[in-house]
């Protein structure tokens, strides 16, 4: 009897040890790397984590703190750890190239969220981003329709990487496309920072008291612009167009302090990127394709339909049921 009990105990112990390792063998491990501590990456990571939990995928998260060297170290560490794939918001193009070289050498597929460059597409598992050259265009078009003439100003992010410049240019293209005769009287940069945008907007309101619309290239800066307008006692008199569709931007729209925002929610984008990467790993998705990240213009009228940054688990489940995005021709710079 004692011998039987002992044998059963040994069997149970053996099963307990072997079972998890068997399931681990089937479980995929994905490294999720974000460029820095920005809320955009954080919300993307949260949604990817929720999707990974539902798909039975293990997600290991890394942050490069906006440091390309740290990013490369993270890629190397993840490869050493034996991950099956890497999902990355890269810090810069140069760090992307270094990361892709490391991943290619190790045979680990790497999927990029933003940072599209023609030279890396073929070696990547895929790249997903919005069309940066046209990102501000729908916002400009919508603002242009509300402002047939008059003065407007723009506040963009940190110059030098190309995206901040492209957002403003595309916003202006949108204004022109709408048929509006409105003219730009000031183009300032506020480094994507709420406080700097507040300061810049205050100065715009002093220098150009007839300004009727301000475009902020992200919603964090739009919050600063809204505060500056409120401090100047002009709430409701100046249109504000933002970009990103962040929770605080949506809140401003709800309160009537912002007119609209061009949303590119990181939540659904990261969920789709994770699914595409897993597809590349199991061979059901062709690597090296470009995908457009979901985007939409959010106004007070369609708030309920907007994909939120802070996606609830049931929403993530719904996105997992939707068809996978299809590869598309990458964006090209406008000719103007």
């Amino acid at each position: 009897m004692n011998i039987t009990r002992r044998a059963l105990a040994v069997l149970a112990l053996g099963a307990a040890v072997i079972a998890p390792s068997l399931s681990q063998a089937a479980e995929k491990t994905i490294a999720f790397m974000r460029g820095g501590p920005d809320p955009y990456y954080q919300f993307g990571m949260n949604a990817a984590q929720a999707a990974a939990d539902k798909l039975g995928v293990k997600l290991i998260t890394y942050s490069a703190n906006n440091d390309p060297t740290q990013e490369l170290a993270n890629v190397q560490d993840a490869i050493t750890k034996g991950v099956d794939g890497i999902l990355i918001y890269a810090v810069s193009l140069s760090s992307e190239k270094a990361a892709i070289a490391q991943a290619k050498k190790a045979g680990v597929p790497i999927f990029f969220q933003y940072g599209y460059d023609e030279s890396i597409l073929a070696d990547s598992a895929g790249i997903m981003q919005v069309d940066l050259y046209r990102f501000g265009e729908p916002v400009g078009e919508a603002i242009g329709k509300l402002l047939p003439e008059g003065e407007y100003a723009t506040i963009t992010g940190k110059l030098g990487r190309g995206d901040a410049e492209a957002f403003v240019q595309s916003f202006k293209n949108g204004i022109a496309k709408s048929g509006s005769k409105a003219v730009s009287v000031a183009d300032l940069a506020a480094d994507w920072d709420r406080q700097k945008a507040m300061d810049a907007a205050s100065q715009i309101l002093v220098a150009h008291p007839n300004v009727k619309a301000i475009y902020a290239a992200n919603d964090d800066m739009a919050v600063g612009v809204a505060i500056a307008i409120e401090r100047a006692g002009k709430t409701g008199q100046i249109l504000i167009g933002g970009n990103n569709g962040a929770p605080y931007g949506v809140e401003l729209i709800e309160k009537g302090q912002m007119t609209l925002t061009g949303s590119n929610p990181p939540s659904i984008a990261s969920v789709n990127a994770l699914r595409l990467l897993l597809g590349v790993i199991d061979g059901s998705v062709k690597p090296g394709q470009f995908y457009y990240a979901p985007s939409q213009v959010i106004t007070k009228d369609n708030l309920a339909d907007a994909a939120p940054w802070d996606a609830k688990p049931e929403m993530v489940s719904k996105w997992l049921e939707e068809p996978l995005p299809q590869g598309a021709a990458p964006p090209v710079p406008p000719t103007n």
């Binding site: 709420r194 919050v223 600063g224």
Partner: peptide
């Protein structure tokens, strides 16, 4: 001033 606490403020 910013009506918010921010990790990057």
């Amino acid at each position: 001033v910013l009506d918010s606490g921010l990790p990057s403020m």
